[in-house]
Amino acid sequence: MLQQYGLIGLLALIAIAFPFVTVGFTWLIRPKRPDPIKNSTYECGLETIGDTWVQFRAQYYLFALIFVVFDIEAMFLFPFAVAFNSVGLFAVIEAILFIVMLAMGLVYAWKKKAMEWQ
């Protein structure tokens, strides 16, 4: 088993090093003529007004939170799916109960109009 992860580990080292190596290589051949206008923030040729950071809507955060819950749910369902052939009908009902609980959360979000983009 660890052999396969050895390959994945080597691949990871190569895959993370490779972009840096190529960017380093282009550093040797590319022109380097920075000037303050060129290096300023690109906003379609207009001058930047104010700070980059502006108040963003909190609703993005709500979606991220709902995502976390469903992500963890999926993590629990995968081992169940793998074990599915060896478990009985009762276990299936348990798993469906598990999903129904989360579906209730989804229904709650729906009813509270938390998923309407306003």
């Binding site: 190529t22 960017v23 290589f25 282009t26 550093w27 051949i29 590319r30 022109p31 380097k32 003529r33 920075p34 303050p36 060129k38 290096n39 300023s40 923030t41 690109y42």
Partner: peptide, 18 residues
């Protein structure tokens, strides 16, 4: 693209940016 100049905006966070 290999021979293009690489512009980094002056107030970018360099480590994260790269």
């Amino acid at each position: 693209l290999l021979t293009k100049e690489d512009v980094t905006p002056f107030d970018a966070d360099r480590v994260t940016y790269n």
